[in-house]
Computed example of a mutant assay.
Amino acid sequence: MSSLAPASFGAALAAAQDAAGAQHYPQGTLYVVATPIGNLADITLRALLVLQKVDVVACEDTRHTQGMLRAYGIDRPGAQLLAVHQHNEVEAAQAVVARLAAGERVAYVSDAGTPGVSDPGARLAAAVREAGHRVLPLPGASSVITLISAAGLVAGGDAHSAFVFAGFLPSKAGERDTAVQALAAEPRSVVLLEAPHRIDVLARALAVLGSRRVTVGRELTKQFEEIATVEAQALPAWFAAGKDRMRGEFALVLHPVAVAADDGAEADRVLRLLLPELPLKTAVRLAAEICGASRNGLYDAALRIKSEGEGAD
């Protein structure tokens, strides 16, 4: 991050003040601040302003965060940085609560992206809320949403537009294999994260999913970003095909299970069985769960079936 001179963000700091300076920033508040996942320019104006304005910055790694702040032209002494990471999160949260009780503003950042999403921060936010203080989120970069936006998750149609965030799978082989078996039964899209030293193991584990498509995002937003979609069974070969493909941080998304062509007819049949016995919305909800079809589409179909019945009278 230090490769970019602080002066590069001078105009951004001024713009942050102009755009967000007049907004209200209450005291005694924890500001959960999303930071870039790779590209320093992916910081929001409000985040820049808050990182200047707060009394202390709680962070996963003080040295990393200090380097990031200096890259933006924000110079904070070490005494204004408080380490809150996975090994001390419970204890450090109490120190943050004490500062908030004294009326201080505290920002929390993880090493990259949105805190509390496979990163420390969730316990801190819970402790602050339990103590009766406000938690104010500042949205921004997230590797999860970044990859989903580029993956083109349409294989399952409207029925599987939702996604599941699974994060990091277990490191132990048996537990990881059990988790992959559960993924095989999940029809929705599933987002995974992985570190470079375990990506080859994950690729081999996911290969059992056969022809199910997987989009791999490597070094997202960075200079050597790579996004590719392959079948799960081809993942080990894809990683082995390039010496740099196992370097960097990874996000992966399993595409939704494809819906069979006759699912519409089956959903229609189930609806016709349920509608005479149940309220329309209940029938639609159950039919969606049974058939894995879109509730919106089923709702329209239910209205059509009901109108057919009324017309027959």
Rank of each mutant, 00 (worst) to 15 (best):
V135G: 10
R123P: 04
L138G: 00
H133E: 05
R134Q: 15
A122Q: 14
A101M: 04
R134L: 15
E104S: 10
P115W: 03
S110K: 05
A131W: 04
A125T: 08
R123S: 14
R134G: 05
V97C: 08
G103P: 06
V128Y: 04
A122T: 13
R123G: 11
H133Q: 13
P137W: 10
V109I: 10
V128N: 04
P115F: 02
A107Y: 04
G132E: 00
A127W: 06
V135Y: 10
D111C: 11
L138W: 02
L136R: 12
V128F: 03
A127H: 10
V135T: 13
Y108H: 07
P137N: 08
A101W: 00
V117R: 02
D119Y: 10
V106Y: 06
A107E: 08
L100M: 09
V128H: 03
G113R: 12
P139K: 08
R129I: 12
P120Y: 05
S118A: 15
G132Y: 00
L100C: 06
A126D: 14
A98G: 10
V106D: 08
R105I: 08
V128A: 01
A126G: 01
V97A: 07
A107K: 09
G103W: 05
A112H: 04
A101R: 15
H133G: 00
A127F: 07
G103M: 07
R105C: 13
A125D: 01
G113D: 10
V128C: 04
A127C: 11
R99S: 12
P120K: 04
A127D: 09
V106F: 07
T114N: 05
L138R: 05
L136G: 00
T114M: 15
